[in-house]
Design a protein around this nucleic acid. Structure first.
Length: 482
RNA sequence: GACCUCUUCGUCUAGCGGUUAGGACAUCGCCCUUUCACGGCGAGUGCACGGGUUCGAUUCCCGUAGAGGUCGCCA
């Protein structure tokens, strides 16, 4: 197979669908695997929907996923232009060729139709096998509208011929169109390319993924701070398999194995839980700096998206983000910032390294960046309420009140404050009380954070500082055991 | 409705005539642990159904059912 040339040919609808993204990914993988060329062609024949923003969404989505193209509207190439809206002359020429052969006729209103041979088209599909498409009873397809604009089937084929496309890898929803397309290839004296119709990606309930569904657009993953390589990796696993137990795979590994044999034949449901798990695997592999960069970007963007209904965007959260990132608070946030500062010695004088410290603590706990919001509010807003179940558990313990008071006393007596000193304080209290250190940890956690779960406790206390820790203990301890 | 494709745990998948049907996500349990996690170990749940072919079918063939797709002067 020499000179493999594949293409991704989206129409600009304003967003990049994950199904489309996976189609692009598979085309890209096939090209890269075979030393071929990956062409991006924008099918913007529908003038109403064709906006620069919609085209930009395609570029940014593909780039975010790490896909690059060798020929395309932005970078040009030997078979351009790559915007269908600029290729009218080529379509006119191709139409003239069909007209010359007597293969077209004009409707009363001016629409042009292609005279179908009305035969059964045999499609040798690399994935579906030999598919027979009976075209004998189908009406002639329209190839040009009365206003002179051309129909998808026609421009698609003319472009594939002109751009020397050798393999068409596209969604299975196109399989019937291929009958029409092969007719056109033949009418234009061109050899049809090889076809591979890949199964579709469905929602978790088996329905078709549409724009409205969460996660249907690549933008969703961008906005929610997903790691591009993780989403890409997960997408590869939908309809493709290395045929062994590998799942977390480098792109190079996937590329090296990418061939028809490894492609599935059945539709796959998108499992957001597993996608998030996959993202978590990539987060674990990230450096603290990489994670902090993604997290901070998300925090800044998220704090701008005011939505009081969503606790992630409530005013407390936004104020907290302003404090930590140094962003400019709005009026209501500024008030909240003052409240936070008066409630928290730590936040009253946040050090420059506080955000990095906070994110370092949270990183091991999250699979996807937005999960940091919950941790942020729960652990770093001293006013956050005590979780009922955690409180019940603490109250069930004997002497919880005096133990917490004892802990506070030992902490207060510390001259210096770091993780080792926190350990020392807890150990001292444990010794005095005659209990194991482990018996103190849970009540301590609940008293300080109000939660039964959260980030690693000792480093958290070290980060919070002595004053904040003691204040929370003194304040919340009695409430817990009253 | 017609036509096309598909059918292994809830989900993604391995399996290409003989396997205790493997892995992953999710769920549950245990262990590890100074807390929370991570991690480790383990459990449960699956070959859609009915016929063939065969010494033997998850695997091959034919039906049935189910799911998805397509039937545009959208792409």
């Amino acid at each position: 197979m020499t000179n493999v040339r594949v293409r991704f040919a989206p129409s600009p609808t304003g967003y990049l669908h994950v199904g489309g993204a996976r189609t692009a990914l598979f085309n890209w993988l096939y090209a890269r695997r075979n030393g071929g060329v990956f062409v991006l062609r924008v099918e913007d024949t529908d003038a109403a929907r064709n906006t620069p923003e919609a085209v930009a969404a395609i570029y940014s989505g593909l780039k975010w996923l790490g896909l690059d193209w060798d020929e395309g509207p932005d970078c040009g190439g030997p078979h351009g232009p790559y915007l269908q809206s600029e290729r009218q002359h080529l379509y006119d020429a191709a139409l003239a060729k069909l007209e010359a052969k007597g293969l077209t006729y004009v409707e009363e209103n001016g629409a042009v139709r292609f005279r179908s041979p009305r035969e059964t088209v045999v499609l040798p599909d690399r994935i579906c096998g030999e598919v027979k498409i009976d075209r004998s009873k189908e009406p002639d397809m329209t190839i040009r509208r009365p206003d002179g604009s051309y129909i998808f089937h026609f421009v698609n084929v003319v472009d594939d011929i002109d751009m020397r496309i050798t393999h068409v890898i596209r969604g299975e929803d196109h399989i019937f169109n291929t009958g029409k397309h092969i007719e056109l290839f033949r009418a234009l004296d061109a050899e049809p390319p090889e076809y591979a119709h890949i199964p579709l990606i469905l929602n978790d309930d088996g329905s078709k993924m549409s724009k409205r569904d969460q996660g249907a657009a690549v933008g969703y993953y961008v906005d929610n701070g997903f790691v591009p390589a993780a989403v890409r990796n997960y997408l590869c696993l939908l309809g493709w398999s290395p045929k062994d137990d590998r799942e977390v795979m480098a792109l190079e590994e996937i590329q090296a194995l990418f061939d028809w044999e490894h492609l599935n034949h059945s539709n796959a449901r998108f499992d957001m839980e597993k996608c998030r798990w996959m993202n978590g695997e990539y987060v674990k592999a990230q450096s603290a700096e990489e994670f902090a960069r993604d997290a901070e970007a998300w925090l800044r963007g998220s704090a701008s998206a005011v939505d009081e209904e969503d606790p992630r965007h409530g005013v407390s959260f936004r104020a907290l983000v302003r404090l930590l990132t140094g962003g400019e608070p709005s009026e209501d946030e500024a008030t909240e910032v003052l409240r936070l500062k008066s409630a928290s010695p730590l936040l009253a004088n946040p050090g420059s390294g506080l955000l990095a410290g906070v994110l370092g603590l949270i990183k091991p706990k999250v699979r996807v960046v937005p999960e940091i919001a919950e941790h942020l509010v729960m652990q770093f807003d001293p006013r956050s309420p005590v979780a009922m179940d955690a409180q019940a558990k603490v109250m069930g313990q004997a002497d919880a009140g005096s133990r917490l008071a004892c802990l506070a006393g030992h902490f207060e007596a510390m001259v210096h404050w770091n993780a080792d000193h926190v350990q020392e304080g807890v150990a001292g209290a444990a010794k005095e009380l005659g209990v194991k250190v482990g018996a103190l940890m849970f009540p301590l956690r609940v008293a300080v954070t109000g939660q039964g779960h959260g980030v690693d406790l000792v480093p958290l206390l070290a980060l919070l500082g002595k004053e904040e820790t003691v204040q929370r203990l003194r304040h919340r301890g009695p409430l817990l055991t009253a």
